[in-house]
Every structure is written in C-alpha cells, then in structure tokens.
C-alpha cells in the first residue's frame, strides 16, 4: 500500500457564487455612486483618465473590474485579464472575501488583518477604499455600516435618502 496518497482540494460553490454576485453588485454600485455622489465623483476625478482597478480573490477569482472610460466610471466585468489595472486589491482567499462581502469585516479592517494584498500605488488604494466605504454607507443599514467603517459619516438627510435611492436604482437597473 502506498504510504502517501494524493488529495485534491475541494470546491466551495455556494461561497464562490455569493462572492461573485456581491463583487458584481459592488462594482455596479461603485459605478452608480460615481454618478450620484459628489464625493465619489471627486475621488475618481482625481485619478488618472484611464484608471482601472480590480478586486477579487486569490488564486482563482472571482473578480470585478471598475475603471474610467471616456470620463465615466464603469463596471468593466469580472475578467481582470488583458486590461491594465492601476490597482489590484487581492483578497487572499475565498473565505476572507466572504467575510468582507458579508460585511463582517470592512475593507480597512481586512487590510489591518492582513487579508488583502494591495498591489499598486498607495494613494490609488486609499482613494478606492474611501469610495468603497461611501458605497457601503449607501448600501447598508446604519447598524451594519457602522461596524464596517471607522467613522460613520454625518450626512445631510438629502444625501442619505436620495443618494441611497439613486445608488440602489442605478445599481439594479444599470444606468
């Protein structure tokens, strides 16, 4: 009998699907927020014209890519290959991505806990993290978002209500 046997690592189809859907959703929400929210708009304006970033899981994805095309911020799909990205936020594994995308850990906290590898220039990474924080405040109920961001912002009611409505509708309807 052989002393050593080969074992093939299993699969996690449920978590993979969840992470894939939420990355897609987050990508779409960033696109929507860039059109509805002044601060997000300003963050992207300060970035290079061809700026693109991706966020996803090592080693085999899923991924989302968001970038500027002809002045507009767009969700550019789930394939990071074949396109230059100024920044890649590489989550070390699917479980860590699941923690982040079930909002148990914010992007900043996940960075603090060594779960994300930031590949790219720091100013770009910081801008993207600020954008993701704002998007989380839009998408999540206050109770959950408060856990996800360091300082829950004091926005005027208008920004909170209309902003949230706009980001949600644009994300879901995709315009």
């Amino acid at each position: 009998m052989e002393l050593v046997r080969d074992v093939q690592a299993g699969k996690k189809p449920f978590k993979r699907a969840y992470v894939g859907i939420f990355l897609w959703f987050t990508g779409k929400a960033v696109q929507a927020a860039a059109r509805s929210d002044e601060q997000v708009k300003r963050e992207f304006d300060a970035l290079p014209d061809d700026f693109a970033f991706s966020m996803g899981c090592l080693p085999n994805g899923p991924w989302m890519v968001v970038g500027k095309e002809e002045g507009a911020v767009k969700y550019l799909g789930g394939n990071p290959e074949g396109r230059h990205q100024h920044l890649r936020l590489k989550i070390k594994n699917l479980e860590a991505a699941f923690l982040i995308l079930t909002f148990q850990e914010s992007t900043a906290m996940a960075t603090v806990r060594n779960r994300i590898i930031t590949d790219g220039e720091l100013p770009h990474a910081l801008a993207v993290m600020r954008v993701l924080d704002i998007v989380e405040v839009y998408l999540l109920p206050r109770r959950i978002a408060k856990l996800a961001v360091k300082r829950y912002p004091r926005w005027p009611l208008k920004r909170k209500l209309f902003g949230r409505f706009a980001v949600y509708t644009r994300t879901l309807l995709g315009f």
Binding site: V4, R5, V7, G10, N60
Partner: peptide
C-alpha cells in the same frame, strides 16, 4: 483539507505518524 477548498491545489497526505515512526519510514 476543507480550508484548502477552492485553492485548486493537489497535495500529498501521509497520516501514519506514530511513536514508532523511524528513519526507514522517513527514507520512503
């Protein structure tokens, strides 16, 4: 093994270490 899930890795497994494991086993 579950923790390796989704990594796509294949690994070897030897689960026979006892207090009588000797250098002959190490050699194999």
């Amino acid at each position: 093994i579950r923790a390796f899930g989704d990594s796509g890795m294949t690994f070897g497994l030897f689960d026979g270490v006892t207090d009588t494991t000797d250098l002959a086993v190490i050699d194999v």
